[in-house]
Amino acid sequence: MKSNQIFSILFLLIICPFTIWAQSDTDFLRSTGKIYTVVAVIAILFLGIMYFIFRLDKKITEIEKQIKE
C-alpha cells in the first residue's frame, strides 16, 4: 500500500469518531472544558508532520535505488 493511501485511511479513522461524538448533546470534544479539541488539533499537527516525513522517506528510498543502479 502506498503511504498516501495509508494516510488517508489514518485520517478517516481519526476524524470519524470525532464526527460521531459531535452529533450528541453530551459531546465528547466539548466535555471537560473542550480540552479534547486541543487534543484533536495536536493530532492533526502530528499527522501533517508525519505525512511530510513519509514523503521525504519515499524520496530517499528512490535515491538509494538510483545509487544501487
Binding site: K34, T37, V41, I44, L45, G48, I49, Y51
Partner: peptide, 21 residues
C-alpha cells in the same frame, strides 16, 4: 513546500477549533 504544509495544517486545525467554538 514546508510553508504550504504548515498552512494546510493551520487551516485544518483552525477548522476543528472553529467547529467547537
Amino acid at each position: 513546500e514546508v510553508a504550504i504544509l504548515f498552512g494546510l495544517i493551520g487551516i485544518a486545525t483552525g477548522s476543528v477549533w472553529a467547529k467547537y467554538t
